[in-house]
Design a protein around this nucleic acid. Structure first.
Lengths: 321, 321
DNA sequence: GTGAAAGCGCTAACAA
DNA sequence: TTGTTAGCGCTTTCAC
């Protein structure tokens, strides 16, 4: 019995004859050792917990997809849970996932207050990705939000737009905050203004419509997250506001469709795969005890300037009333 | 010790005083019972395995996302693995996931030969979704591929198109096959032809380009899966083939961007959430031993007729050379 | 209503 | 190199 265990775990002290016989029996029976019993006795196993805000967001889907592949290569399985962008649910998930005693967690938190939601009583190593918690102490992988947003703002200002509306879910989410701050700092002569659009489609729609219908329409609209971009783009079409003639448009977060529409949308392309890869690498490094202090990694984004944000041809100046 | 267990599992035979004290201690310590030990002793736990071909496909992302929510509501955790559309990897995943002794599996198989890839030695209940295995014996939730594809083909024929190219990954995938057969059966006077485009972006591109550049260009193009749609749409733009002037375009699988482009794309909208919901319901039903024989459920799709497939205005007839 | 003891399927430690 | 024994953290059983 112990010998079977030794064969399956590749221990050296087993005779060739036994190895062969055990393998044959295992194949015939389709036997796979029980991970639970195995973990219980050895204390070790290869299970990683993944907590994301929303799996239906293509960015998080791509993140988990890449993570799954890398985890598999390292023999890990993934327990995936969604916080549904809700702090309370996130807290509950972080708590209940501990019952599996995962080797560690990879978390995209729903806002900055992650520390406050960690259950007491010894958590496994945590690598935080994409969004930066208010408190330090975590390994961290994110993109250079401020710099990339600044590049977009500078581009929009450079195209001669005078006023810019920035719309993103919530400033409580670090990357939205960093993007806004980066854009605001780089706006130069362009007047720039922020609206928190929320996390719900309907709410986003209402808030954007209210702002776009009231008073002077901004020359440019810069959306800071995928859902806001989607809703804004649809809304502009419905309102008959033409891109880029009536308004310039740019997005943080580049998804498939943005270069398929006409004109294609200027966007910040986040290196999602690279982020997942970096998170996994750091996860493994942390588990093997290599690092002493938490590591922070900031990845660069590509700025994709496309037709949606280019100067309105033939119009010398702001034509909105 | 046993009493603590009884409190946590809500057993009735515990005094109120004990319940209060145990809960207080649990809260203070952040204690969560070890699922592994718990499963080992009781033989029961709430873990479901999910096997999908590719998490980065938005359709599967939405599927898993919905599943995760429903699972959570029923107290289940989800072990998610991807087969990367590769039968060998699928077989390996199906095998290794058994080490967790999941209560059951929900599988979107990568092709029809699922049975052949199941490890011997007693598998847990399996609900198959989206794609139909060649062998019966599984609970099944899928959409009415043939009927929906037929509706598209009939629509294209009705618009006066004379020739139609159908492109989908592989006929070995049941839903692609059903879609092709449904379309072929409903083409009427319209000449219809199928090309298997493959699963790899580059390959899809090459095959489509070869077909679209050679000989007579078809009047209409009907793509049967998301990746083929994406690649085809980009390719048409690059080739300068205008939709719908030069070619009518329709897609099986409706994603966000298809109604954002100009003209919006005619598509079959699959009820992904409903499919996930039905799969979960069946999963729970199967676990509770309610059903004797496997159940098959076919869900209806919505046909979204949009601008991309409408008759070319002003052109009385087939203008292609 | 509570506590003591056994045992789930493994692996670690050690004896043979 | 192989076999035996103990025990991981729970839940079940059963005595109290």
């Amino acid at each position: 019995m112990a010998t079977v265990s030794n064969v399956l775990n590749g221990k050296p002290s087993v005779s060739q004859g036994f190895i062969t016989r055990v393998r044959a029996a295992v194949d015939e029976l389709g036997y796979v050792a029980d991970s639970h019993a195995s973990r219980l006795r050895s204390g070790k196993h290869s299970l990683a917990g993944v907590v994301v805000p929303d799996l239906s967001n293509p960015m998080f889907g791509a993140f988990v997809s890449t993570l799954e592949r890398l985890a598999r290569d390292d023999g890990f399985d993934l327990l995936v849970v969604s916080s549904a962008n809700d702090p309370d649910q996130e807290a509950e998930r972080l708590r209940s996932i501990r019952s599996w005693r995962p080797a560690g967690l990879i978390v995209i938190p729903c806002d900055g207050r992650l520390s406050a939601r960690l259950p007491r009583g010894g958590n496994p190593p945590i690598v935080v990705a994409d969004r930066i918690p208010d408190d330090g102490g975590f390994d961290l992988v994110a993109v250079d939000n401020a710099k990339s947003a600044a590049a977009i703002a500078a581009h929009l200002a450079g195209e001669g737009h005078r006023t810019c509306l920035v719309a993103g879910s919530m400033l409580a989410i670090s990357n939205v905050r960093e993007r806004w701050e980066g854009a605001a700092a780089a706006a130069g002569p362009m007047a720039i203004e922020m609206v928190e659009s929320g996390l719900d489609r309907g709410v986003i729609r209402d808030r954007l419509r209210a702002r776009l219908s009231a008073g002077t329409r901004p020359d440019a609209l810069f959306t800071l997250d995928h859902l806001t971009t989607l809703v804004a783009y649809q809304l502009l079409a419905e309102l008959g506001v033409s891109i880029p003639r009536d308004i310039a448009f740019a997005s943080f977060d580049d998804t498939e469709w943005m270069h398929l529409v006409t004109p294609p949308i200027t966007a910040v392309r986040q290196p999602v795969e690279e982020m997942a890869r970096a998170a996994w690498t750091q996860f493994i490094r942390r588990l093997s005890g290599g690092d002493a202090v938490p590591r922070t990694l900031r990845l660069s984004c590509a700025i994709e300037i496309r037709g949606s944000s280019l100067r309105r041809t033939g119009l010398p100046d702001n034509a909105a009333a």
